[in-house]
Every structure is written in structure tokens, then in C-alpha cells.
């Protein structure tokens, strides 16, 4: 496969605790090319967040490996940015919007003018250039999550990882933010790995949807989404193909929940 960006191989994670060990992730393998937008869906409690933390180098897997650009991930890599679900706990309330976006750039050894340009550009990309001097807690939930996205964009990562980023915002804001993510992918060619529990969202956003089984987790299906790259909340979601795809993913998730899917011998 040409220019593989992210390679997850036979990833396994077992949590050890005093009451016994819990196998959160059984055996996950998939790869992602540069410039792709891949969505990961799975039934609730299937270890999506655990998977992301392993990919991001925040957790060490029990077995298997994660490779970014051919290099094994053992600590948080410099070319990766994360957007968390809990924007309220991921942004620093003592820093302004500008300060929050600036913070990860501080150790990047950039000239001041270059740093400033990145911040302004990122805030413009998320439509928050007017709020640079505000504090995050002065903004609505959706705007706060935009700040978190701007922080990740300014960091100029090779891959952007988003962990259920829109689970805590209302439906209308969510639609806007989905289009923002599509826009970042289309206009800037960003590689995005997007984890969600929302089936419609995964089909609407992704070029590929990876369906996870229930815990201990493995990849139940790796589905290419053959919708046109130009997507629209109204027309795309009304397409018969969209309905087919979402129904298919929905059925897969139901099977995953019931544990019906039988894993092909690897």
C-alpha cells in the first residue's frame, strides 16, 4: 500500500486490576493512508477510547504495535494532535483562546511571527478569529470545541485524532462541526482519525468506516464509503446510497452488540 501513515498491528490491551484482568482490546489491525478521513465506530464500551490512547502513545498496549510513518509509537508522537470529547477539561481555563492555541506551539521553536500566523490561521479556519482574547469558559460548548480543533490545526499534525468530539454538543452545533471537519480534510488535506458512536456521523464524515466488535475488540468490518467527496448535510443524508450504507453499518453494530459476528481465523 503506498504511503501508509498509520499502521496498527495486532493491538491488544489488557487492564490488570486487583479484581482480575479485563481484556479491553482483543486484536485490532488496520492501516490508514496519508490524507484519509477514517471513522471508527463500535458498540458502547467496546474500547474505542482505549484504542485511541494506545494510538496516541498515552497508553502502552499489552501486545502488538502502532506505527506512525514507519516509526513505532511508544510515547506521544510530535506529529499527532488530539481533540478530546471533554472540551471543558481539555482547554485550560486560565489561558485565553489565543493562549490555548499557542501553548502546544511553544516548544516547537518557531519564530514569533510564524507562530502568530499559525494561530490566526487556525482560529480563522474554525471561525473564531473574533474570540482570540476571550476565555474558553466565556464561550458556548460548540465554540469551545472549535478552540480545541483550532489548537490541533495550529499544531500542524500529520494526523488528527478525534475522540467522540461532538458527543457533548447539541444537534445543530454538531452538524456545523461535522462540516468543519469535512472542510479541514478537503481544504487542507488533513489526515483525520475520527472515533464516534454515532453511525450517521461516521458514514457522513468518513471515506472509510471501521466497525469494531464488542469487547474484547477486533475489527469486524473495514468499509469504504463510496459517497462523493463534496458532502452536504441535507442532500448527502437524503441519498439512497447514504441510507444503504448507514443501514449496513447499523446492522453490523447490532451484530457486534449481540456478539453474533464470527471472527475469521486470522
Amino acid at each position: 500500500m503506498p504511503d501508509t501513515l498509520l499502521q496498527v498491528e495486532h493491538l491488544k490491551k489488557i487492564y490488570e486490576s486487583s479484581t482480575g484482568s479485563v481484556e479491553a482490546i482483543g486484536d485490532i489491525s488496520f492501516s490508514m493512508r496519508s490524507g484519509e478521513l477514517v471513522c471508527i465506530v463500535g458498540p458502547s464500551g467496546c474500547g474505542k477510547t482505549t484504542l485511541l490512547k494506545c494510538i496516541a502513545g498515552l497508553l502502552n498496549p499489552t501486545a502488538g504495535s502502532v506505527e506512525l510513518d514507519g516509526r513505532k509509537v511508544t510515547a506521544p508522537p510530535a506529529s499527532m494532535a488530539l481533540v478530546f470529547q471533554e472540551y471543558g477539561r481539555s482547554l485550560y481555563p486560565w489561558l485565553t483562546v489565543h493562549g490555548n492555541v499557542e501553548l502546544p506551539l511553544k516548544h516547537k521553536r518557531l519564530a514569533r511571527a510564524e507562530r502568530e500566523r499559525l494561530i490566526v490561521d487556525a482560529l480563522e479556519a474554525v471561525g473564531l478569529d473574533h474570540a482570540a482574547k476571550s476565555y474558553p469558559w466565556q464561550l458556548s460548548g460548540g465554540m469551545q470545541q472549535r478552540v480545541a480543533i483550532a489548537r490541533a490545526v495550529a499544531y500542524q499534525p500529520e494526523v488528527l485524532i478525534m475522540d467522540e468530539p461532538f458527543a457533548a454538543v447539541d444537534a445543530q452545533t454538531r452538524a456545523d462541526l461535522e462540516d468543519l471537519v469535512r472542510g479541514l480534510h478537503r481544504d487542507r488535506g488533513m489526515s483525520i482519525l475520527f472515533v464516534t458512536h454515532d453511525i450517521d456521523e461516521s458514514v457522513y464524515l468518513g471515506e472509510r468506516v471501521i466497525v469494531l466488535s464488542k469487547s474484547p475488540t477486533w475489527v469486524q468490518e473495514d468499509l469504504a464509503i463510496d459517497l462523493a467527496p463534496e458532502r452536504d448535510q441535507i442532500t448527502t443524508r437524503a441519498l439512497p446510497r447514504f441510507t444503504e450504507l448507514r443501514t449496513h453499518v447499523y446492522e453490523q453494530i447490532q451484530r457486534a452488540k449481540r456478539g453474533e459476528a464470527i471472527r475469521a481465523a486470522a
Binding site: K53, P76, L103
Partner: peptide, 9 residues
């Protein structure tokens, strides 16, 4: 975790 993921020393 946010700080760690952005490689903040």
C-alpha cells in the same frame, strides 16, 4: 493527557 499528547515538556 492533553499536555502529554501535545508533547509539552
Amino acid at each position: 493527557e492533553t499536555a502529554r499528547s501535545f508533547g509539552i515538556t
